[in-house]
Design a protein around this nucleic acid. Sequence first.
DNA 1: ACCTGAACACCGTTCAAGT
DNA 2: ACCTGAACACCGTTCAAGT
Lengths: 227, 227
Amino acid sequence: MTPGTPRPERRGEPLSREIIVRAAVRLLDDAGESGLTFRTLAERLATGPGAIYWHISGKGELLGAASEAVIAGAISAGSAGARPPEAVRTLALGVFDAIDAHPWLGTQLAVNPLRPPMLRFFESIGRQVRALGVAPSAEFTAASALLNYILGVAGQNAANARAVSPTTKRAEFLATTSAAWAELDPDEYPFTRSAADRLRDHDDRAEFLAGLDLVLAGITARLAPPP
Amino acid sequence: MTPGTPRPERRGEPLSREIIVRAAVRLLDDAGESGLTFRTLAERLATGPGAIYWHISGKGELLGAASEAVIAGAISAGSAGARPPEAVRTLALGVFDAIDAHPWLGTQLAVNPLRPPMLRFFESIGRQVRALGVAPSAEFTAASALLNYILGVAGQNAANARAVSPTTKRAEFLATTSAAWAELDPDEYPFTRSAADRLRDHDDRAEFLAGLDLVLAGITARLAPPP
DNA sequence: ACCTGAACACCGTTCAAGT
DNA sequence: ACCTGAACACCGTTCAAGT
């Protein structure tokens, strides 16, 4: 299945920050956060660990650069011209889908947000909040609430991805969790227990959007003027 | 300022899981996540690193147990008898204040939620959602949205705490961030730039509650029947 | 049963030496 | 200027040996 030695990440070209970051993203995708080490990365780049330090200051910058490389593409993808409620959904889905494709990104965003690309994301959210007609005094609160909700989901998805082996399918994971919840004491956990059934055919993406719509509805109801 | 060798964590008593976890919480509070090592912890407990493994299976369990110890007290504290909208605020503030007192907890919750104590938290949130009159088909979505928002804030707070030295005061941090945002290009970042001013006298706790109220308002507006 | 601490297999990072 | 890879100072974890 997994080849012992993946294809080399460069052929002849000199090392560069860009090549290192691209290789780091691939390594993270293949092996998860714990799989990204300077030694393994150097091996894939056919060099020694010290070479990486000429281009990147350390592990923190490496992880940050990998996150930024992935998120930058995801955010700029779908921001073209859409209007308030739908534009927020498109923006948020961009982040959601990027995390779905790169689970390690969820941890990074949840725990280390507002680096430059996420600042652009926050900016985009903020503009949409303005377009909804939210008063200046409340727009920061509204944009923050949206961002916090999105980052919360990011962390959850990352946690779920980390809790199971990378090959486990979504449905299998949900079935396991659902079964575990179904065995909770009904006197102590009436709510969670009754949620077990609904969990079995749970659609993460749809659920994410439904929650986002609740936050949007709250913003509209409390902060946006009636039309 | 900081004493070189803090007081020993036990005097005479035998080691136990409880004593180890208590010492781990104190070490995390004193030195942050990167300060918790088996060697340092063993030193504080006046023993060798191997001794800890007799009681705790590894670092993951140690971090999990420390989180549970702190969060368990915070959650059970204020759940007595309050009614829907206010009870959710009390529950959420319990988590918020626990993270404020123990910043490392924010990372743990954002990235590793729904361990037993957080499951109780989710259960409590869920019951309040029911008490609001949300239909069974929507109650999981509503409770999840509240939890995701709370966990998102948890991650943000942890990130902010980690971004600055432990002694930096809140106001100082906000002033720095505000100054940085004020220097953003007004054409590229009109929203974030205008938020810079408001950030200077920003009250985290009040802002957290305001965002929570937006999610609650969305739940009420969209999912709770009119009275 | 519980503890000890040396030893093992890793890390991230540095740096003299090379090209 | 850029790369190499051995070496350093750590980790988490294991385990033979003690009590």
